[in-house]
Amino acid sequence: MSSETVRSIQQALIADGFFPGEVDGIWGRRTIAAVKAFQDSVGLEADGIVGPKTSAALFSDVDHVPAGPLLPWLAEAENLIGTREVLGDKNNPTILDWADDLDLHYPGDEVPWCGLFVAHCVGSTMPEEVLPSNPLGARQWEKFGESTVPRLGAVMVFWRESKNSGKGHVGFYTGEDSNAYRILGGNQTDKVCLTWVGKDRFLKARWPRKASSLGGGDAIIVMNRTEDLSRNEA
């Protein structure tokens, strides 16, 4: 979801007397806490997710309601596009902070960090969501949350090298064509970016349990691909 949508939500929260921090378009902990407080005040489940019911209540006095439910983990992922690891002996402190915030042992960004990226996006925006026991392992995300179909925001798990290697890649669904999925993920050419991953490598699509209210419908986005497929995301 765009930063403009997040700003609209933050402004609406302030208008209703709830403080989400600065109106900065960032889906952070203060904004989530403000959404939960608002939900509680109007008798909705305080899950911190701006779904259809919360959106309708929050924007009941204005003419425009942001289109579609806000997927906070995807909004955070979009905000981090361009974040990259540091080549050599040094590390990107932002990536290390993700691990520290989740109390994970992570030696440095030369270690594959696609799972860490997904864990940060989900864990920082939905702190009550249960993450895999070892979120650094891409294939561990096959057991995350609940099963879903490939759709906008779904956690997509792929095998890497071979299906039986135990190695994998994980990221978020943003679209597809007939042969590949458009994935927003970390450690894709050493950075957070969008790339195409072949459907022949697809294993599972998963959805946060705390966001089950946003799971209705198949938000499939068909695209025309012009880039080559990603072959190895390590």
Rank of each mutant, 00 (worst) to 15 (best):
Ala77Pro: 09
Asp103Pro: 05
Val42Gln: 03
Lys143Thr: 08
Val130Trp: 11
Glu128Tyr: 00
Pro20Ile: 01
Ser178Pro: 06
Arg151Pro: 12
Pro69Val: 06
Ala15Phe: 13
Ser178Tyr: 05
Arg182Glu: 12
Thr148Leu: 01
Arg206Thr: 01
Leu184Met: 05
Asp47Ala: 00
Asp24Tyr: 10
Gln10Lys: 06
Trp196Ser: 01
Arg182Ser: 10
Asp47Arg: 00
Ile32Gly: 07
His105Val: 15
Lys167Cys: 06
Met156Lys: 04
Ser60Thr: 06
Arg206Cys: 06
Lys53Cys: 02
Gly198Ala: 14
Ala119Lys: 04
Gln11Thr: 13
Asn224Glu: 15
Val122Cys: 01
Asn134Arg: 05
Trp73Ile: 03
Pro93Val: 06
Asn79Arg: 15
Met156Leu: 12
Phe18Trp: 12
Glu146Ala: 13
Leu80Ile: 10
Leu184Glu: 04
Ala34Arg: 00
Glu128His: 03
Thr31Leu: 02
Pro93Ile: 04
Asn232Ser: 11
Glu128Gly: 00
Arg182Lys: 14
Ser60Cys: 12
Asp89Leu: 13
Ser165Val: 02
Val149Gly: 07
Thr195His: 02
Leu58Ile: 02
Lys167Ile: 09
Ala219Lys: 09
Ser178Gln: 12
Asp190Trp: 08
Ala219Pro: 06
Glu76Ala: 10
Ala205Pro: 04
Gly88Thr: 13
Pro20Lys: 03
Ile183Gln: 04
Arg225Val: 06
